[in-house]
Design a binder for these strands. Structure first.
Length: 254
DNA sequence: ATGTCCCAACTTTTGGGA
């Protein structure tokens, strides 16, 4: 089973690239973030013609998450439930091919002294609680744009990023909390030395210079993570005509 | 060079967000 995640930075602009990539990579499940579309505008029919069922949770101008699947989509949920604070359309869940899938768009945080940063940490706490409460015998994977680089080896220059979001101890502690409840950073298994990125700023020729970060993560429950057989970032998708600033991250499970 | 891209609107230029 091939599971992937991609922050597309507007599905309206990126649909041709997504359709092209589905045909190329043939994922069984693809999670999207930052669709920036209303539910009415999401291109369910064009995706269906490409062989994928889809569910979308959007708000229009900002955020927006989706799950595409060619192995079924059941038990769809959005947000953290009635008592949760999702802070925008940032979470959609579904069961696909027997695996519980959560497409996640973690708040950016903006700056360490921002109220939005506290919101980011709180969002991660809510995700951790949701995952902790999932049935022990169910395969679960939370994947998406976490806006957190797990380690200094996951950014192009740790020195240049001191004091910035995405690399702070507070944010990394929230990822560690997911690990503590049994969720594993699947990509790390195959690239223990780091240096492989999933996002490069549009500005400053960052992609060309190799100035990137790995912030798009695939966090799998323990037994599922044990069945991971490979992973990769498709850097080709960051090139060419109207790319997203993120590349797709893919993991294969036996 | 805070150098790009994408969205919406009191829309043809600006401001917000990443």
């Amino acid at each position: 089973m091939r599971i992937a995640t991609w922050n597309v930075n507007s599905m309206n602009v990126r649909l041709p690239r997504v359709l092209e990539w589905l045909e190329l990579a043939e994922p069984d499940v693809l999670c999207l973030q930052e669709t920036k579309q209303s539910d009415e505008k999401f291109p369910h029919e064009q995706l269906k013609e490409a062989g994928y069922d889809s569910v979308h949770h959007g708000e229009g101008r900002w955020n927006g998450v989706a799950i595409l699947s060619r192995v079924g989509i059941e038990e769809v949920t959005t947000g953290f439930g009635p008592d949760g604070d999702e802070r925008g359309a940032r979470l959609i869940g579904a069961t696909c091919g027997g695996v519980r899938i959560l497409s996640c768009y973690v708040p950016n945080g903006r700056s360490l002294d921002s109220e939005h940063f506290e919101g980011k940490l709180a969002w991660m706490d809510q995700l951790c609680a949701l995952l902790r409460d999932s049935p022990a015998d169910q395969d679960v994977v939370a994947l998406g744009d976490f806006n957190i680089a797990p380690d200094d080896a996951d950014v192009w220059d740790p020195e240049a990023l001191i004091g910035m979001t995405h690399v702070s101890p507070q944010e990394r502690a929230k990822l560690a909390a997911l690990t503590e409840i049994g969720f594993d950073d699947v990509f790390r298994r195959f690239y223990p030395d780091g240096g492989v990125f999933s996002w490069w700023d549009y500005r400053d020729g960052a992609f060309h210079k190799g100035h990137g970060m790995r912030i798009d993560l695939i966090m799998a429950s323990a037994s599922l993570a044990e069945r991971a057989v490979g992973a990769y970032v498709d850097r080709e998708a960051r090139k060419g005509h109207k790319p997203s600033d993120h590349a797709p991250v893919v993991a294969d499970f036996s």
